[in-house]
Write a protein that binds this DNA or RNA. Sequence first.
RNA 1: GGAGGAUUGGCCGAGGGGUUGAAGGCGGCAGUCUUGAAAACUGUUAUGCCGAAAGGCAUCGUGGGUUCAAAUCCUACAUCCUCCGCCA
Length: 427
Amino acid sequence: MLDAKFMRENQDLVRQALENRHANWNLDLFNELDEKRRMFISQEESLQAKRNAASKQIGALMGQGKRDEAEAAKEEVRKINEQLDEISKQRDEADGALRDLMLRIPNIPDASVPVGADENDNPEIRRWGIPREFDFEYKAHWDLGPELGIMDFERGTKLAGSRFYLLGGAGARLERALINFMADTHGKRGYKEWWCPALANANTLTGTAQLPKFEEDLFKTTDGLYLIPTAEVQLTNIHSGEVLDASQLPLKYCAFTPCFRSEAGAAGRDTRGIIRVHQFSKVEMVKITTPETGFDELEGMVADAENILQLLGLPYRVICLCTGDMGFSSAKTYDLEVWLPCYQGYKEISSCSCCTDFQARRANIKYKDPDKFKGTRYVYTLNGSGLAVGRTMAAIVENYQQADGTIKVPDVLVPYMGGMTVIGKQD
RNA sequence: GGAGGAUUGGCCGAGGGGUUGAAGGCGGCAGUCUUGAAAACUGUUAUGCCGAAAGGCAUCGUGGGUUCAAAUCCUACAUCCUCCGCCA
């Protein structure tokens, strides 16, 4: 959520920023509701002031035994209350309408973000590693995985439907190995690990802005809870409603969770393999920082995600999302894209964003620094994948396949695989 | 799932319709005393919103209700604690 006062006072800037995002929003409606709301507030409060004074007077009159005067005053207050009811109703309406609008306005891109229309305008920042040249007929993971018996798409579909899959034997082990490797590696770099619920309530999901605008992307339970689409939701909301001390910051958190996505509107895209599925594992990173350090911490978070890919020896590139391709909450996003032979191209495997105070305002996360300022200020929140486990597995299967149809286990994963160096056909 | 009990400021804890935004204590901050510190003493110490300001409004778990007036009465819900049942 943006700051209403900031929007009121910087309309041209806000209008331009949202235009660059191709976000259509109604400035006139905002101005109207904002003005209405403030008008009703001052009307309501002056009536309340009148009522409070009169009520106090009644108490005094009763004390002096002046019954008749007290009764007359009561009648007076009843009339005030009638007016108040009407005004309060209108104030609530204006309040609600403004909030509904505000919750659906995306964050303002940082000035350093390139202006662009869509994914084709995302500049490449750097590359690491060299895509492998195969001297044999290489296979896509959706072919090689089932051949080795480490992936089973047909039975996954039988159990839960399309876009679900099974991992078997060394495949299941590789999933756990990747999770542990990633979480351990981030832990060594200062991220505190959490275990958290896979379900979240509507308030929590509003804090990180999956709600109200993107409800159709989520799985919902009959109890009104939602399956989390990413641990960002839980890690960021851990401190919702809290006032942190500047000395605690930055907080660096990570968590492994399953992630659930309905993939509504993705029909026909990435239908093969484990690239786009309803449930996948992810190790997520979240940072909570001061505004001063937020964007530096973003660079650090990208480096932490790159570290995983480098240790795994997977070629990748870093791109910066342009204004037209960024996510709703983000002020600046870097994507890491891993080389996938089956696509003969790079595919997103991590997305790291600085959300400035956009989520903090929704989730009400503040900090205090008495030496620097009075009162409290909103923190900056950052999140990044470190990494998506399913896509990492696909990348390993494809990039580490060998001519004999087996898969070499990356060196750093061997200890996590119990010493296994090659994944062959499963029994 | 059933039966009880609880929820007040940074923390503990009073208050059970009317100058109670809320006693008292602890903690924090400032000062007196002291060479310095401790102790003692004195003062001070919530947040949000509207407003140019003066000032005002709201907030005692959350939402409704009763009343001229609610921390205080009623009600629903949430959370925590104890006991029972069930369960990995």
